[in-house]
Design a protein around this nucleic acid. Structure first.
Lengths: 63, 63
DNA sequence: TCTTGATGTAAAGTGTGTTTGTCATGATTC
DNA sequence: GAATCATGACAAACACACTTTACATCAAGA
C-alpha cells in the first residue's frame, strides 16, 4: 500500500511526533508507515482518517 | 471495529468459503473477522472493499 | 437415518504491527 | 561549535493477523 501521510502532514506543518501524538502511537510507527516499512492496522487507519478528516481511500492506495 | 460482512455476504448468497475464495484467505479468517475475533489487515480490508464494490467506511465501523 | 454443506471454535505455527530504546545525520539557532 | 529538533533506521520484545488442521453442531435433503 502507498500512502500520502507525509504530504498531508506537511500541509498541516506537523512533525512526525505531532502526528504520533494525535494518533496516540509512537513516532517510530508514524515513520515506519510513512517510509513504507509496513501498513497500519485497520483501527489505526481509521484513526488516521479521523485526524485528517478524509476517507481512508483518499489517504491509502493499493500499490 | 464492527463490520457488515455477514449481511453483505448474505445479500449475495455467498458462503464464508465463497468469500474466502474471492479474498484469497482461509475460511477461518473470514469467520474470525465476521465474528469479531480480530480485524483484518489494511490490505485485506481493501480487498474486501473491492469484492463488495463499496468503500471501506461502508463496511467497517469504529466501535 | 445418513450424508452433506455451512458455520463456529481451538491449537499451533508463521509473519506483521507496534513499542521502547538507541544511534546517526542534517538543519537551525545561539 | 554546542545544543536542539526532525527524520530515518535498527534491534528486541510483545501483541495481533493469518494459516493449517481438526473437530463439533446444526439444518436440509435423499
Amino acid at each position: 500500500m502507498k500512502n500520502r501521510l507525509k504530504v498531508l502532514r506537511a500541509m498541516r506543518d506537523w512533525s512526525q511526533q505531532d502526528l504520533a501524538d494525535r494518533l496516540e502511537v509512537s513516532r517510530q510507527s508514524v515513520n515506519a508507515i510513512e517510509t513504507g516499512r509496513y501498513d497500519p492496522s485497520l483501527p489505526l487507519a481509521f484513526r488516521i482518517a479521523d485526524v485528517f478528516e478524509m476517507p481512508i481511500e483518499e489517504i491509502f492506495e493499493r500499490d
